[in-house]
């Protein structure tokens, strides 16, 4: 069973960086992504927002293989700063999973 991680939920709440509140799940980001990932970014951000840390960790490879090219944010109708959100996730994983900073 997937459990909500209060640690991740708190980190998101306290972060100045992560913000996906305006995401409407329209899927434009997925459509324009050169990598063609289905998970990034909308599905992944939903996992983050509700604190499903295990689901986020299942997708570490996708998180680090984002090009940060910004094509998604450029075309996002809700102007979500998607690359900043991905960077936040990398920072969170570096600190909490890899013991790096």
């Amino acid at each position: 069973m997937n459990r909500v991680s209060s640690k991740m939920a708190l980190a998101v709440k306290c972060s100045d960086t992560f913000n996906a509140d305006a995401c409407m799940h329209c899927g434009v980001c997925t459509a324009v992504c050169p990598m063609g990932y289905e998970i990034l970014p909308r599905k992944l951000f939903r996992y983050v927002q509700i604190g499903l840390e295990d689901k986020v960790k299942e997708n570490i490879s996708s998180i680090y293989s984002c090009l940060l090219c910004g094509m998604c944010a450029e075309n996002c109708p809700a102007e979500v700063n998607i690359a900043d959100n991905v960077r936040f996730l990398r920072k969170y994983i570096n600190e909490n999973e890899f013991n790096l900073s």
Binding site: M35, S65, C69
Partner: peptide
């Protein structure tokens, strides 16, 4: 503003994905 990435940012961690994007 709608340019397509060269794939370079992935070279150090995911070389084959980087090459796929560069080829595209």
């Amino acid at each position: 503003k709608n340019t397509h990435c060269c794939g370079g940012p992935l070279e150090s961690l995911f070389p084959s994905e980087s090459h796929r994007i560069a080829n595209n």
